[in-house]
């Protein structure tokens, strides 16, 4: 009943519906007071590409939570695992001497190879984790949090065991080290790739969730598992699938971030988990659209503030999170 009244309220008051968007966009034009247009545009492109990378990791987190009601704190570990998987593929290509001479098209192909390997590795690890550990703790939030903290610990230690404890330099395909200039704005190719990948994955997720039978089953499972089970669907396999998909997204995000920073280290997951958590909290747990918008907000504000007041960058994200939580305790797109 609650949702009914809410729906009708927004329908009858269109201004309120758009007010948030107008204020939001206005806020993002605010930095223009302090900087010239070129800098602003450069920072905006960089911010959106950072946002897309964060979206990759946040979307997996929110997907797993949305369907399975599991807050997977091992997500950061899947992210780091994916980074190492992608790093290994790039390293092999580098040993063959293909990385330094790659054209843009070849670079894209190598990136696809690395992302594919990371996605498969992350998805596989996700299936294992779900089947061995997570399925034993459905329905108990506290145990889920604790058990996923443990899993994350195990994965990170395994990373250290396999690849060593030190930072490693990630070989970046030559084609991505170039940039092009539009309106005086210096844009690296890899940023464009990141933005493109983020939007593509957002579109695919939206299509699957909204248009396909699988999406209907998934959304129905979020709302009422009993009906879905009694209709004849094996929901435990659907859970495994979603968990694997979420983990694969984290792993893909990990490889992208590894190339972005040109480095991997075993603890890298935790640094980005904080971004992902902020994004998911801002966007609302369980909403893919929410984490898309949240990721753009976090990416942009982080870049603007990092340019103006470097030390405040992370603090500003916390402030945004706190303000949004005070106005909307369930996040921008959160549901009951």
């Amino acid at each position: 009943m609650k949702t009914d009244t809410l729906k009708f309220q927004t329908r009858n008051r269109p201004f309120q519906q758009y007010a948030g968007w107008i204020i939001g966009i206005g806020l993002f034009l605010l930095p223009l007071i302090q900087m010239d247009l070129t800098t602003y545009l450069t920072l905006t492109v960089a911010g959106i590409s950072l946002g897309m990378l964060i979206f990759l990791i946040a979307s997996g987190l929110t997907l797993i939570f949305g369907l399975m009601d599991v807050l997977n704190l091992a997500h950061a570990a899947f992210f780091a695992f994916g980074a190492y998987a992608g790093f290994t593929v790039l390293n092999l290509l580098n040993n063959a001497g293909w990385i330094d001479t790659a054209s843009l098209a070849q670079s894209l192909f190598y990136l696809a190879l690395a992302l594919g390997a990371a996605g498969l590795a992350g998805g596989g690890l996700g299936i294992l984790t779900e089947k061995i550990v997570i399925k034993r703790v459905y329905g108990n939030h506290l145990m889920q949090l604790l058990v996923t903290v443990g899993v994350s610990f195990v994965i990170v230690e395994l990373l250290k065991m396999i690849w060593g404890v030190n930072d490693e330099v990630v070989p970046v395909p030559m084609g991505f080290q170039d940039a092009f200039i539009i309106f005086g704005v210096f844009i690296e190719y890899f940023r464009v790739v990141a933005i493109f990948l983020g939007i593509t994955i957002f579109a695919i997720l939206q299509y699957i969730l909204k248009q396909t039978k699988l999406g209907i089953i998934v959304r129905a499972g979020v709302e009422n598992q009993e009906i879905v089970k009694a209709t004849g669907y094996n929901i435990s396999w659907i859970f495994t699938l979603v968990f694997a998909a979420g983990s694969a997204l984290a792993a893909i995000g990990g490889t992208m971030m590894a190339i972005f920073n040109q480095a991997v280290d075993p603890g890298m997951g935790n640094q980005f988990l904080i971004f992902a958590l902020i994004v998911v909290i801002i966007g609302g747990l369980g909403s893919v659209t929410g984490s898309f918008v949240g990721a753009v907000i976090v990416g942009l504000s982080f870049n603007y503030v990092a340019f103006l007041w470097p030390k405040m960058a992370l603090g500003v994200n916390f402030m945004i999170m706190a303000i949004i939580l005070l106005i909307r305790p369930k996040g921008l797109f959160g549901k009951d």
């Binding site: 949702t3 039978k213 209907i216 089953i217 959304r219 129905a220 979020v222 709302e223 009422n224 009993e226 009906i227 879905v228 209709t231 549901k335």
Partner: peptide, 15 residues
């Protein structure tokens, strides 16, 4: 017991 976040059409498609 219907899936209230889904449309009527989607409810049928699910079943």
């Amino acid at each position: 017991a219907v899936l209230s976040t889904l449309t009527v059409a989607e409810n049928f498609r699910l079943s």
